Simulated assay, not measured.
Amino acid sequence: MVAIGAAVLAGSSAGLAQEPEPDPGVKVQLNDDTAYKLGLVNKYVHGDSNVALAQCPGGGGLKAPKSATFSSPVLSIGKYDYGPLIGVPANLSAEVTLKEGTAPGSYPLTVNCNGKSYTATFTVPPRQVSEVPSGAAHAGDGSMAS
Rank of each mutant, 00 (worst) to 15 (best):
V45Q: 14
G5C: 12
E100Y: 15
F122Q: 00
H46A: 06
K37R: 14
K79P: 01
L38I: 12
S130P: 01
A136G: 06
E21L: 13
A6R: 11
G83M: 10
K27D: 08
S146N: 10
S130W: 09
E131N: 08
H46K: 08
N42I: 09
V51I: 14
K99W: 06
L53C: 01
A94D: 05
A136S: 15
G101R: 09
G115I: 14
P125M: 14
A6Q: 09
V129C: 03
C56G: 04
L53T: 03
K27W: 09
L30T: 03
G11M: 12
R127E: 13
P108M: 06
P20R: 07
P65M: 04
H138Q: 11
V74G: 00
A6E: 09
V111I: 14
L53Q: 00
V132P: 03
L75M: 05
G83T: 12
S134M: 13
P108S: 04
Y44M: 07
N91Y: 11
S93T: 10
K99P: 02
A64E: 00
D32H: 14
M1V: 15
A52V: 04
V8N: 05
L75Q: 01
E19Q: 12
D141P: 03
L53E: 01
T121W: 06
S146R: 11
T119E: 09
S12Y: 15
G5L: 13
A10E: 10
V45H: 04
T121A: 09
M1Y: 15
Y44C: 02
A6G: 02
D81I: 08
T97S: 13
A35S: 10
A103I: 07
I77D: 00
P133N: 13
P20K: 04
